[in-house]
Design a protein around this nucleic acid. Structure first.
Lengths: 179, 179
DNA sequence: GCGATTTGTCAACAAGTGTTGACCCATAAG
DNA sequence: CTTATGGGTCAACACTTGTTGACAAATCGC
């Protein structure tokens, strides 16, 4: 499969995997180029630099939000889909989770926060109000990063039905209007 | 205050602040030394290297868990205390939150995960079982990092009473036994 | 076929990293 | 006074980082 791709796509693919696996600043361009079997200089040629490559790997991260959810039930569904089902059926990294995982990084932190706020958080705020949107974001963020950073396996057991119901319950709790 | 400290304590203090603010691998020894007004070489002298310095800044991270909570109500109290009250009354960074924030880092990730598992997660598992412990960890993790990484301000409004009740509610939801 | 434009190759660069060894200087023990 | 000893200073080290420029090769338009 890989030998039929042009080098730009090869670079994109391996960059995506490595950024997801190790985080933006823990991956060097030479690692990516080596994994793709390509010279380092090609990255700057094709993507303009490391940041440009990272931005390119974020493409499609927000497709699922292109039509923003209009009520809370729909929102709940969307989140469960993003954070439970998609990561398990698709072997490739989920772009939105990659986004969140790299939020704490000096190099791309600003870009990531900007994108997240503009493309996701704004919609949440409009639908839920300031406090509940923040609360929900915190929960979602926790799930995204806990499994990856702490390698907490129990969060996502093979039979994900129970996990799904627990997550749903948790998100509902986050959506309760404060007194 | 700072000029009365010896250089080792000065280094420790500024290292702690910078590691917390920017993450382990985003802080260079020269930055720390410069902030402390001290030569870089002293760090390797006093702490044996960057990793040694980081380990030293983790000291006392788990004091609050020295007597592990024995029931779920106590556990809930402890978490609210750690993640709501302590960070606001104390201007210095909370070590446990620093620990979690640096979990996603190639250099110290293993150390951080090991410490977290050994000192916190094990107690949670014994008390709650595998799944609920993981779920609670995810929520707590989200709160620890979301505010810091995503700069979501709404999570912790100045009047923290409402926030406290929301967090309590959320933690209770995480503690519900799965069907 | 010929020229132009893309695409790939190689080597080097400047900047930044953690770490080490050689020296100096104080203070206290003999 | 002499002499160790611990703390501090300075310069260099070996290494990695992202990026760039000069050149070769291949591709495509005409």
């Amino acid at each position: 499969m890989s030998q039929a791709m042009n080098t730009k796509d090869k670079l994109w693919l391996h960059a995506r995997r490595q950024f997801w696996a190790n985080g933006y600043s823990n991956v060097s361009l030479r690692q990516i180029a080596s994994a793709a079997g390509v010279d380092v200089a090609l990255i700057s040629r094709h993507f303009g630099g490391k940041l440009g490559l990272f931005k390119a790997t974020l493409e499609g991260a927000f497709d699922i939000f292109e039509t923003p959810p209009s009520d809370e039930a729909e929102l709940l569904d969307a989140f469960v889909r993003i954070f439970v089902e998609t990561p398990r059926t698709n072997t490739e990294p989920s772009a939105i989770r990659m986004l969140l995982t790299n939020a704490h990084d000096e190099g791309v932190g600003d870009l990531v926060r900007e994108l997240y706020d503009e493309r996701i958080q704004q919609g949440l705020r409009a639908l839920l109000g300031e406090e509940r949107a923040a609360l929900l974001a915190a929960v979602v963020f926790g799930f995204s990063v806990a499994e990856k950073s702490l390698r907490i396996e129990g969060i996502a057991p093979p039979s994900s039905d129970q996990y799904k119901s627990q997550l749903t319950h948790l998100l509902q709790a986050a959506l309760v209007k404060p007194r």
